[in-house]
Each structure stands twice: as structure tokens, then as C-alpha cells.
Design a binder for these strands. Structure first.
Lengths: 154, 154
DNA sequence: ATGGGTGCAAAGGTTTTGCACTCCG
DNA sequence: CGGAGTGCAAAACCTTTGCACCCAT
């Protein structure tokens, strides 16, 4: 357990200036929100938390920052099909990197679970296609145990 | 190569009536669109093709059908982050089942590739969680070779 | 100083919903 | 027949954009 588990302020500084983007108080603030809270946050969620901390950051800025930070690989964007994009801190730690999602087609519930699996596949892809992989997302769609129970006793 | 490669009309009939839904001409027509064309189609794409075939099906009906058919596992819903949900016929054939996507964070290009991998993992999940898996989606995010070349010679 | 970044409000695009009417079972 | 399904148009939502102003570099 070392200190480089999640991308943090230092990484953002580096990646932003590396590409000629500026380090603004808004971007720092938004990153901090992700460090303090966690989970899968939508733009609106982040905006809400910012307003709680009486920040004056506009919603459009939140959208622009989430977009940029996920393009830089600091955040990861995910879609659970609930109508809005959700983001979470990217991580360099394989233990955390490899958590996947089960999504119930009936009740839309999202269940997380961990499983190690995709490292060699990623390396293989990078070789074959010249694609540089920053993150992956694995989703399984089906029916959760509750919905299955409910539909069998109808 | 047998006949049960993709879900078809018979499967839809069965799954619909099994759950008390009706088999309507609209639903049949929409399924047919997927059988004749393929690929990743948005609601609007399907609607466009229907109008081409001078169908009188409304866009809302298309949305409702896509939702229902993917809930039944006949279609698969996917999100490439381009602002609209896309659907494709689900398949029982593992060769087709296992195609994944590389998504470039810079230019948003989607590259498909095939790789066999997740069967045992699916079985494992079903055991541990009671989750019945109908389909999965694997996406890798990163930078495609063109974007990498472009950013290195700036 | 200067070009990128921000805030606001308006626009844009996708998806959902209310309601009267239709038609499958 | 009766209730699920449909079509239409309006509404709801999430996200993007235009523009004037601000501020990291």
C-alpha cells in the first residue's frame, strides 16, 4: 500500500501542464471532491457537492472539467444507462483497477465486484493495435437474484 | 454454424408472451430492421430506416421497443459516449458474443476487435451472486495510434 | 498581455411522458 | 372486450455552446 494508489493533485498538475492546459482553482476543487468522496459521481452530483462547500463553480465548468480530466486519464467515465455519465478517480493500482459491474436489465441496479483478469489482454491489444490503454470498463447485463425470484413467483 | 446464431422472431414471440407482453406489428418490424441491417444502431437510426420502408411507426414507439427488447435480452444496449444509446442483436454464438471495443479518449473513434475470454468468469459470477448474465460489454479506453502520433509531433 | 478558462443563460439533442385512440389476446 | 401498446406533441433531462469577462502563465 504505497502512496501512488489513486491519481491526485500532483498527477493532474503534471498531465495538465504537459499538454498546455492550465491549473485552475476550479479544476483543483473538482479533483478534491473526487478525492474526498468517491463512488460513481455524475456532473450534477459533483456540482451539488461543490455548492455544499459554497463554491461558485458553474455547472458548465464541471462538465468541461470532467471531460478534460477523463481525457487525461485522471478520471474514468462510465455509463450505467441511467441517463447521465458518471465518473470516478482512475487508479494505477490493479487491485482497484479491476472492479467490474453487474447491471440488472430489470431494475437497473448496479452491483460492483472485483476480479483480476484483463492485464495480459491489455498488453496484447497494445501490441497488436498500437492503442495505448488508460482504463477499461467491463459490464455484465442480466437479471439480479431479486428480479429473478420476483419473476418466477408470478 | 447452425440456425440459432442470432435471436430472431421466434425468440421474440416466446420471450414476449412468456412475460405477458404483446406481439405487435411494430415490434416485429423493428426486430426485422435489426435482422436486415446490423451494427450499432441508435433509436434515430432505426426510426430512419423504418421511414425508408414507409412504416408509420412513431419515434416514441421505437424507444419503447428498444428498451423492452433489450430488457428481454434480444437486443443489447451499448453506450459509446456519443450522446445516444446504441443497440444490436444479441447473439447466442460465443464467436460473435466476444467482440469488444477500443474507444479513443481523444478522437472518440470506436475500434472493434474480437477476443475470447469471459466465459468462465461469467459462470463464476452466476454462481457467486445469483446473477443471470445475458450479455456483457467490454470497453478499453485510451489513445489510438493516430492520436498518439499526432500528440508526439506537436 | 493574452489566450485559455469561466459563468451564465440559451440552445441542442436525446429520451420520456400524458393522453386519446387502437388493436392484440 | 379490456388493457396493453401506439402516435403525437409537449415536457423533461442532460450536455454543449456563445459570449463577455477573468486570470494562470
Amino acid at each position: 500500500m504505497e502512496n501512488h494508489q489513486l491519481y491526485g493533485l500532483a498527477d493532474m498538475r503534471e498531465k495538465l501542464s504537459e499538454r498546455g492546459y492550465k491549473i485552475t482553482p476550479q479544476r483543483k476543487e473538482i479533483l478534491r471532491i473526487f478525492e474526498e468522496h468517491g463512488g460513481h459521481m455524475s456532473a450534477e452530483d459533483v456540482y451539488g457537492l461543490l455548492r455544499g462547500n459554497d463554491s461558485e463553480i458553474g455547472l458548465a465548468t464541471v462538465y468541461r472539467a470532467l471531460d478534460l480530466l477523463s481525457e487525461l486519464g485522471i478520471l474514468v467515465r462510465m455509463d450505467f444507462g441511467d441517463g447521465c455519465a458518471r465518473y470516478e478517480l482512475n487508479t494505477a493500482d490493479p487491485k482497484v483497477h479491476h472492479h467490474h459491474h453487474l447491471i440488472c436489465l430489470k431494475c437497473k441496479k448496479v452491483i460492483e465486484f472485483e476480479e483480476d483478469l484483463l492485464d495480459e489482454l491489455e498488453a496484447d491489444i497494445a501490441n497488436k493495435s498500437g492503442f495505448e490503454i488508460v482504463n477499461h470498463e467491463v459490464k455484465f447485463f442480466g437479471y439480479c437474484s431479486e428480479c429473478r425470484a420476483r419473476s418466477s413467483d408470478e
